[in-house]
Amino acid sequence: MKGSALTFVLGAQEKTCYYIFADKPNSNVGYYFAVQSGGSFDIDYTIKAPDGSIIVNEAKQRQGDWVFIAEKVGEYEFCFANGMSTFAEKVVDFEIKLDDDFKAELPKAPDQPIAVEGMQHSVDRIEAKLNDLIKSLQYYKTRNNRNQSTVKSTERRIFQFSLFDVLLMAGMAGLQIAVVQLFFKDSRKQLV
């Protein structure tokens, strides 16, 4: 299994492409991406086959985790675009895996085929559980980053509202003092 995982920053109005070469036909290509921060946590992405045909074209996606069959030998293109954002850059986690169905297998012993098959089955189950665990960790990392962004945004808005509230109260107090002074100034002129 060949693969690459990376985190990159996608600027506003920017498009970035990554490539993977499938050297055997009908290989499994798995990919995962998640927008970790920035804007509404969404990007556009496109996957193209070596002949230029579009395999997947999605808009405004927050994350994705899919597997498709690379039917042709050649370079597959994974492009991410942040065209909808005019100023917000986005941080994206991205992973591509190319699995050409090669797995290490335990040698079969002629006198103990049941024990070896049981061990192979156990290894396969452990591998599946580890893959599920990795996907869960990626999901929780993404959720944590989004929740932190929401908390920071809420803190900023609370601070701005509190500052506005203090300025409004100070302005109202100043206005009340001015009205009371004006009221008493007019009443003194009438007495004299």
Rank of each mutant, 00 (worst) to 15 (best):
A88H: 08
L175T: 10
G39I: 01
C79D: 13
Q160R: 07
T7F: 01
G39P: 00
S53C: 01
G64D: 15
I55Q: 10
V56S: 11
D65T: 05
G52S: 07
I114F: 05
Q36C: 03
G64A: 14
V179F: 01
F80W: 03
K24T: 14
A22S: 15
E14F: 00
Q148A: 12
A5N: 08
C79N: 10
G174T: 08
Q181S: 08
V91E: 15
V179T: 11
E155V: 11
A70D: 07
R157Q: 14
K152E: 12
P50T: 09
T86A: 10
V73C: 08
L10I: 02
D100E: 15
T16M: 12
A81L: 01
I126P: 02
L163D: 11
P110E: 13
Q61N: 11
P110N: 12
T86D: 12
A115W: 05
D23Y: 03
E77I: 02
Q190I: 05
V73L: 03
Y32M: 03
G118L: 12
N147S: 05
D42V: 09
D111Y: 05
N144F: 04
Q176N: 13
Q181R: 10
P113R: 06
F33P: 01
S122N: 12
K135C: 04
K141E: 10
Q190W: 03
V91C: 09
L137I: 12
Y19V: 04
T142L: 05
G171A: 14
G83C: 01
R146A: 10
V92C: 03
M1L: 06
K152Q: 09
I177D: 10
K129C: 08
F159P: 02
E14Q: 15
Y18I: 03
L167M: 14
N131C: 05
Y45S: 07
Y76W: 00
F21S: 10
K135A: 14
L6E: 10
T150C: 04
V56P: 03
P113I: 03
K90Q: 13
D111N: 11
I134D: 14
L167D: 12
A104V: 13
R156T: 08
G118A: 14
D93T: 06
E75H: 04
V67C: 06
F8L: 03
R125V: 09
D186K: 08
M1T: 06
I96K: 06
F8D: 13
V92K: 05
M1V: 01
E105K: 14
S4T: 09
F41T: 06
R62Q: 10
V92N: 06
N57K: 14
W66E: 14
D132E: 15
E71R: 15
L182C: 08
D111G: 04
K60R: 13
I55R: 12
K72R: 12
K60A: 11
G64W: 01
S149M: 04
F41K: 07
R146W: 05
G3F: 00
F102V: 09
Q112Y: 07
A34W: 02
Q181N: 14
K189T: 04
T142G: 11
Y19P: 02
Q181P: 01
Y18A: 06
N144T: 14
L10N: 07
V29I: 15
S187H: 11
E127S: 11
D101N: 14
T16C: 06
D124H: 05
K97V: 07
R146D: 06
A109F: 06
K97F: 00
V35T: 04
F68P: 02
